[in-house]
Design a protein around this nucleic acid. Structure first.
Lengths: 119, 119
DNA sequence: ATATTATACAACCAAGCACTAATATGTTTC
DNA sequence: GAAACATATTAGTGCTTGGTTGTATAATAT
């Protein structure tokens, strides 16, 4: 119940098929795609799950052990997740503790909920 | 509240940092990643939104007009979405009507809900 | 001040991806 | 039957991406 179709505003004479559909909101699309592409990668998805399981804070070195890639890759992945608004960063001494945002928590929960719903 | 950390089962002596984190469920990961990578593409995301807005059924030719790519690309995108369990297909004559699955509907709704929640 | 730890940034590169074009299959209509 | 339509599939291709290696910055320790 989010959108609605503007019924044939173009008035093109093709009957039977090909009704007109209105476009998708570009701003929302951009935001959502940034989120989805950020989550849709093995390393970054696992980082999110690890951060979620260690509620409160994990530092990069913890995560580095969890996923099987270099420290550099983890750092880049976390930056990407932060840009997408999926994780928060808290500096403390020379460590950085990462935590989930509400957005990320909600999406992970939805994924858990729907997994196996429809085959 | 989905996962929990098994507190330092490895017992490695490094104090201060680098606690152990358990791995992420591989089956769930695979399923979720298939969903996320399927949604995380401009064309496929827009297709989902278009299908969502035209509740009940859209044929491929309708969609082809909505997104700016070739018929072939739309067909491929829809196959990918179907593999990921995000759309259903109903044949009727020489047309195919696509609809959202509950999974896709739930995820799009969550995206709408969280958009702009945290900056 | 130097060394060590913790993290980020930049450049490069192989692999995967998402298109287009062409062709195939199935369905109406003539 | 042939022609036109609706969709799928295959092959080829340029571009994006996610990783590594190397280097830089910052904080703590010696």
């Amino acid at each position: 119940m989010t959108n609605s179709v503007t019924a044939d505003e173009t008035g093109n004479g093709t009957d039977g098929c090909c009704a007109s559909l209105d476009g998708v909101d570009p701003a929302a699309t951009a935001t959502d795609l940034r989120v989805l592409t950020a989550m849709g990668n093995d390393t970054r998805y696992e980082l999110l799950r690890l951060i979620a399981s260690a509620d409160g804070g994990v530092c990069v070195c913890d995560l580095e052990a969890g996923v099987g890639v270099s420290q550099s890759a983890v750092s880049q992945a976390l930056s990407r997740l932060r840009d997408a608004g999926l994780v928060t960063r808290r500096k403390e001494g020379s460590w950085r503790y990462y935590g989930l945002t509400e957005t990320a928590a909600a999406l992970l929960e939805t994924l858990d909920d729907v997994r196996g719903t429809d085959e």
